[in-house]
């Protein structure tokens, strides 16, 4: 049970970072922490005590397998996370070129 709580705490650490940090890169890293805490949570909920990796072996069929579905979900979510992170990084590089800074306090053209 403690592992699940640790996941949630890691999630909150990421959320805290995303809200309080002022550096664009650090915000992106915080988002990645949130992302991976969620993936860890998914991997945990598929775990079954004494289970092995869900690869069917025709020679030795009777075994307890861990739940393969969360693993597939995590793989899909990693692909999506890769796309969003790449997109975010591209935007950050562009912002750095336009504003010349990573500090979010100096990026405030849009107001009101």
């Amino acid at each position: 049970m403690i592992a699940y709580w640790m996941c949630f705490i890691l999630f909150l650490v990421g959320l805290y970072g995303a809200i309080t940090r002022r550096n664009l890169i650090k915000i992106a890293i915080s988002l990645s922490i949130m992302e991976f805490s969620t993936f860890l949570f998914f991997a945990l909920i598929g775990y079954i005590d004494g289970g092995v990796a869900p690869i069917v072996d025709p020679a030795d069929p009777v075994k307890i397998y861990v739940d393969p579905l969360p693993q597939a979900l995590v793989l899909t979510a990693i692909v999506i996370g890769l796309a969003t992170t790449a997109m975010l990084m591209a935007v950050i590089i562009r912002i750095y070129r336009k504003y010349g800074t990573f500090d979010i306090r100096e990026i405030k053209n849009l107001r009101g």
Binding site: F11, A18, M34, T38, F41, I92, R94, I95, Y99, N109
Partner: peptide, 26 residues
């Protein structure tokens, strides 16, 4: 400048939303 700032805000908040949703689904 404006577009990049807007999309950065959108992406960070959208990213947070996505992971909250994913956590809920989990």
């Amino acid at each position: 400048k404006n577009e990049l700032e807007a999309t950065f805000k959108y992406q960070v908040l959208g990213g947070i939303a996505s992971f909250i949703i994913l956590f809920g689904i989990g």
